[in-house]
Simulated assay, not measured.
Amino acid sequence: MNNSSANILKSFIRLARMVHRESHKHVHDVQDHRMHRAQGHLLSIIAENNGAKQMELAELMDMRPSSMTEMLTKLAQTELIERKQDEKDQRVMRVYLTEKGENALKASKAAIVDMSDSLFGVLTEEEQAQFASLMDKLTKNLEEKCGGLSHHEDFMGHRGHGEHRRADFGHDFGHCRHHGHHNFRGI
């Protein structure tokens, strides 16, 4: 890795940490509860598929049914969703967004827009397009090397707290291994 690449990586890691902190601040500041992004994503899917079966939601989120049940239980406990047995098949549970869930989803979407404006508003439209293009190029490269996102990561690439992992690309950045937190300060 040449010195220029090392400096880019340092800047990128610093930016990623700041974006992570900022995202937590924006999302948590506008919500009464502590909803993780994966839960927000699930609320979006439920809103688009109101009354869907639990199994269908698990497939849409690419999650194990047991993980989906756990996530839905947490959302039901906070009254963001409700589960009802299917009238025709009592073994099937259908999931519905509550009014509180709709409000939480609206607040979450507003927080994302607010955070995006806060982060990228400093860039011109041309710079934003160029930045997006470069990120897409880097993402596609890493997906080819690492096999894409795991099913535990959501649309913003976030894992639930306690599940964080960072990719370690070895000395030559030619392969991808996952393990616990890695300290990049020595770069």
Rank of each mutant, 00 (worst) to 15 (best):
M1N: 10
N2R: 12
N3S: 08
A6G: 06
A6K: 15
N7E: 10
S11K: 12
F12N: 01
R14K: 13
L15H: 11
R17T: 10
S23K: 10
Q31M: 13
Q31Y: 01
D32V: 14
M35H: 04
H36I: 08
A38P: 02
A38N: 09
A38I: 14
Q39A: 12
H41W: 12
H41K: 13
L42A: 12
L43A: 09
L43K: 06
S44E: 09
I46W: 01
A47E: 13
N49F: 11
N50W: 07
Q54T: 15
M55T: 15
L57G: 08
E59A: 12
D62F: 08
M63R: 14
M63N: 03
M63F: 09
S66M: 11
S67R: 03
S67A: 08
S67C: 01
S67V: 05
E70K: 15
T73D: 12
L75F: 02
A76Q: 14
A76M: 10
A76I: 07
Q77F: 03
T78N: 03
T78A: 02
L80V: 10
L80D: 06
I81A: 02
Q85P: 07
D86H: 03
D86E: 00
E87L: 09
E87V: 14
K88M: 02
Q90Y: 09
R91Y: 06
Y96H: 13
L97T: 08
L97Q: 04
T98G: 00
E99I: 06
N103E: 15
A104C: 13
L105S: 05
K106C: 09
S108Y: 15
K109W: 05
A111Y: 04
D114Q: 10
S116D: 11
D117M: 07
D117Y: 04
S118D: 08
F120A: 05
G121T: 01
G121E: 03
V122A: 04
V122D: 03
V122F: 01
V122S: 02
L123D: 00
L123I: 01
T124H: 07
T124P: 02
E125Y: 12
E125V: 12
E126W: 07
E127K: 05
Q128T: 09
A132L: 12
S133E: 15
L134Q: 06
M135R: 10
D136H: 09
C146R: 04
G147S: 03
L149A: 09
S150C: 03
S150N: 04
S150L: 06
H152S: 13
D154P: 11
M156V: 14
G157K: 09
H158T: 08
H161F: 14
G162E: 00
G162M: 00
G162C: 00
E163I: 00
E163S: 09
R165P: 01
R166K: 04
R166V: 08
R166I: 05
R166F: 04
D168N: 14
F169V: 02
G170M: 06
C176I: 06
C176P: 08
H178C: 06
H178Q: 11
G180H: 15
H182I: 13
